[in-house]
Amino acid sequence: MIGYLEGTILQFESDGILLLVGSVGYEVLLNPQMVEKLMSREATDKMISLYIYYHQTERQPKPVLIGFESPDDKEFFQTFITVDAIGPMKAVKAMTRPSSDIARAIETKDVSFLTGLSGVGQRTAEKIIATLHGKVKKFMLVTKDENQDKNQDKKEMKTESFAFEMLDIGRQVEDVLVEQLGHSPASAKRMVKEALEANDKISTPEELFDEIFGKN
């Protein structure tokens, strides 16, 4: 089983590359945003490394190699294809945005973002959220370049985690303001936004309510 390849790009295909490893050329499928990324770097004849998902079934007897830039991207892909009706071939075409962005959309239940992915309609987007919500938070953190300072990585991870937590707190409070206290959605969103801007030390829904009603 092939799990990793390192070589040079002989040529770009419409949906991937022909990768020369030693004296053997491997056809490797890549998601659209990765193809664009490699083309913009003029990566032909330069050494690249790919983590490989090997796909072969009775319905797909010809082996297919799908390449990823990192183990995290490969793991997200393997999680993504657990959704009914999203097989490997459909998934690789759908990943027109970074896996971290797709994971964020799933965790925030952003249907409009998901329907913007290639081949994903309203029902499929809802099925993705129903299947994966709560399971892909760890992929929301953008993978940094290996040469970047590790302390900076930790800082970015902490900031990203905090931002997601505040988004969740804000949504909880907005729901209560609208459903229980009779405010309009626009008014509730404004109240939450103003309170968070006024007090950056808020860390719970209760503290957010105190800030809102102390000023309104």
Rank of each mutant, 00 (worst) to 15 (best):
A105R: 00
R104L: 15
S40E: 10
L50N: 02
K62A: 09
A130N: 03
G22H: 04
Q11W: 02
I202H: 06
K154R: 14
I9S: 09
Y53S: 07
S184R: 14
G116L: 13
I48L: 13
D210C: 13
K150W: 07
V173G: 09
I86C: 11
Q78F: 00
P205D: 07
G134F: 03
E211R: 08
E160N: 09
K201V: 11
M157P: 03
L167Q: 14
E58N: 07
T44I: 15
A94G: 14
K144E: 07
D101V: 14
Y4M: 08
N216F: 15
S14F: 03
F209G: 10
V192Q: 11
Y54N: 03
A198R: 08
L38A: 12
E197W: 04
L38D: 12
S118I: 11
R190C: 05
F12N: 07
M140H: 03
S100L: 06
R97E: 10
L50D: 02
V173S: 10
P98L: 11
K138A: 05
Q122S: 15
D73S: 15
L38V: 13
I202R: 06
P32I: 12
S14C: 08
A105I: 02
L177W: 07
F77V: 03
L38G: 12
E146S: 06
Q56R: 07
T159S: 05
E194W: 10
S187M: 14
A130W: 01
D84V: 08
D175R: 15
S112W: 08
V111N: 03
S49W: 01
D72P: 04
A188I: 14
L20Q: 15
P205R: 06
F139S: 10
D200M: 04
L50P: 00
I9F: 12
V28F: 02
Q172E: 14
N31C: 10
F113M: 12
L141T: 12
E165Y: 11
T108A: 06
E197Y: 05
P88G: 08
Q78K: 14
I169K: 06
K193E: 11
G22A: 09
Y53P: 02
K158Y: 08
R41D: 09
P98D: 12
K127H: 09
A103E: 00
G116E: 13
D149V: 04
T159E: 02
A125K: 09
N31L: 00
D110T: 08
N199P: 13
G67C: 04
I128K: 05
M140Q: 11
E69M: 14
S100E: 13
V178H: 05
K158V: 09
E69T: 14
E27L: 04
I2N: 01
Q152C: 05
L18H: 00
T57A: 03
D153V: 11
F113P: 06
V21N: 11
K193I: 05
R104D: 10
E156R: 04
N31A: 01
K90G: 00
K154F: 05
K137R: 10
E194V: 10
A43W: 00
A186Q: 15
G7M: 07
P205W: 07
K127W: 05
I66S: 04
T131I: 09
S161F: 10
T8Q: 01
L29F: 01
